[in-house]
Design a protein around this nucleic acid. Structure first.
Lengths: 348, 348
DNA sequence: GTGAAAGCGCTAACAC
DNA sequence: GTGTTAGCGCTTTCAC
């Protein structure tokens, strides 16, 4: 653990370049109206001294931090159960980095942490927040609101279906579900079952809604609750098979669930896809490609969601972000819903 | 995206409490030598105004940021392939939070990012860094060194086997591997194979070393290279079976590898554990409990590693951290190696 | 014990 | 165009 040497200041650079601090500041911040000759001298001095701006001093006057908080409830969401959150993080990180912003990670473990996060956000330490709020009664959204920090949500917050000006990014869960079920129906399957996710999460609720869109009058016995885990998928599949031995297709709310269902199907002697066709959701590669047989599933662009969240936030912060990108949605849209695509493998 | 209101300053609190800024500062920072009556008045004013210290202003004078960078190479490590890194992050987050430090996440995607990270670290934006460096020729460690930031590494850096003052936290990979192989031998197995991880990572190399410690004269044909993925495990297992059809045990370098090996074993008609006993490494619950049969494996306390890394760093920064904890290692130890334990399930 | 005052390093008016 | 100046909100000697 080496001791960190005193860094050169603007002052030092100015002296070395034989100009004023203001001029150095202008050059460093890329503002125009500095004669090229001078600018060059300054740049050289910066280089020679290894000058790096002191962000604390800068923040003190600009009130900008070039930092964004990412808030996620760790135990409640499936944050670490599958690579879902990790991929979003990756997208977020890329986008923030591209615009020279830092990522401050705030993980909450329970109620006690909420106060801390609220205080931090309200403390004006970051310019904005990216919040993952997937549960019905999540206190986080309210907290963030009252903290008065510009925020973009990951996943449709259930408490705001279009009224408020809540900005969020989500996958087209409902449309994706529809396409999955349509595909199954197109295969000639008539007894299509659905294993849901935990229905207090909007993504799970939306996928169920999509299923119902296509199978309006479906036998309720063909719907079983899962929880986005393989174990939940197994339980639900057994239940389904007991209730409706004649089912010929299953739409699972996510890939992990489908993996569990597949195991039970094999255990019960059903051939996939001949006897029972299966479609998942997510297209988590490590899961979907490793199932036996490989899983047909609905792909969502998870990393893209993360990138978009960051982009939207940055854009709200100032006119700085990614105007070059065609994906940028209309400025008035409260929520942005990314399309999904069906990936054909072997289970349906 | 609400507009953020102007926050109250120290000045405002001082005025309200009828004292000087200095006194408020003392109270806020918990320094002694302020009469209780005054202190109480100040606290009330802080409360009423909802005062939160401006960290930028504070950092400007103290040169401390109460922030730590976590640096990880995203594509190279298996950061997001399994929940390994996520769990470490969780441990780190908990520990940092407990000591009121923030976590700045720096993900690198390739060479281009190294310069950025180096600049950031050298820029004095954080008080220290937690760096995950698992590869032989990783440029990150060097970068961090020259940035002159207090650092703790995650995993034994290969380029420093005890000489320099490098602080790191690692699992007892070698000892854990030994216990796995001893267990297999204790079961009476005599033709024990090993599927390695990518040998440019110290963890994989150390596990191989542990295997060799116990099976000194082992037939080289009983060792096959994997890459910590299920696919790699499958390939290696096939290779092994082709070379030595009579093998009766396999020690896989991690659980994912073991999962792949298990599939091939079943496909080739070997019963587990009757014909071939299998032991993994990591005890990643979603994997180890879901294999068929459930996997016997070497558990490492991943979250604990993360916590310890943070604790060590914080301790180095000042005398602030976790002196209350018995796990804190001796001040002179360059690296800390956490014990592993064998978890018995059904494969061995 | 408490207050007054001097900066920390930077940006942004405002002069020149 | 470039320099001068006044703070941003806080901690910290140093008097009292």
């Amino acid at each position: 653990m080496t001791e960190t040497a005193p860094r050169p200041t603007l002052e030092a650079v100015a002296e070395r370049a034989g100009v004023s601090r203001a001029t150095v500041s202008r050059v460093v911040n890329g503002s125009h109206g500095v004669r090229e000759a001078l600018a060059e001298r300054v740049r050289r001095a910066v280089e020679e001294l290894g000058y790096v701006p002191n962000q604390a001093a800068r923040s003190l006057v600009t009130r900008r931090h070039r930092a964004v908080a990412v808030v996620a409830a760790e135990p409640e969401t499936r944050v670490f159960a599958d690579p879902y959150f990790a991929q979003q993080l990756r997208g977020i990180s890329k986008e923030l980095t591209a615009h020279d912003n830092q990522l401050v990670l705030l993980l909450t473990e329970g109620r006690e942490d909420h106060a801390r996060v609220g205080r931090y956000l309200a403390g004006g330490h970051v310019d904005g927040a990216l919040v993952f709020s997937l549960h019905l009664d999540d206190p986080l959204p309210g907290l963030v609101r009252s903290a008065g920090v510009p925020t973009v949500f990951g996943g449709r917050p259930d408490w705001d279906d279009g009224r408020g000006g809540v900005v969020y990014v989500d996958s087209d869960n409902r449309g994706g579900a529809r396409s999955a079920v349509h595909h199954l129906a197109g295969l000639g399957r008539t007894r299509i079952a659905h294993i849901t996710g935990p229905l207090d999460q909007t993504s799970a609720a939306d996928r169920l809604a999509g299923f119902r869109d296509v199978r309006a009058g479906a036998d309720p016995g063909l719907i079983a609750q899962g929880d986005f885990t393989p174990g939940g998928g197994e339980r639900a599949m057994r239940e389904l098979l007991d209730r409706c031995p004649g089912l010929d297709a299953v739409f699972a709310a996510n890939d992990l669930t489908a993996a569990g269902a597949l195991r039970v199907l094999r255990e019960r002697g059903r051939r996939v896809p001949q006897d029972v066709a299966v479609v998942g959701f997510d297209d988590m590669l490590p899961v979907a490609e490793q199932t036996d047989p490989p899983l047909t599933t609905v792909r969502q662009d998870i990393e893209g969601m993360g990138r978009l969240m960051a982009r939207l936030l940055l854009r709200g912060l100032d006119g700085t972000a990614a105007d070059d990108d065609t994906e940028t949605p209309s400025a008035t849209a409260p929520g942005v819903v990314l399309p999904t695509t069906l990936v054909h493998r072997a289970t349906a």
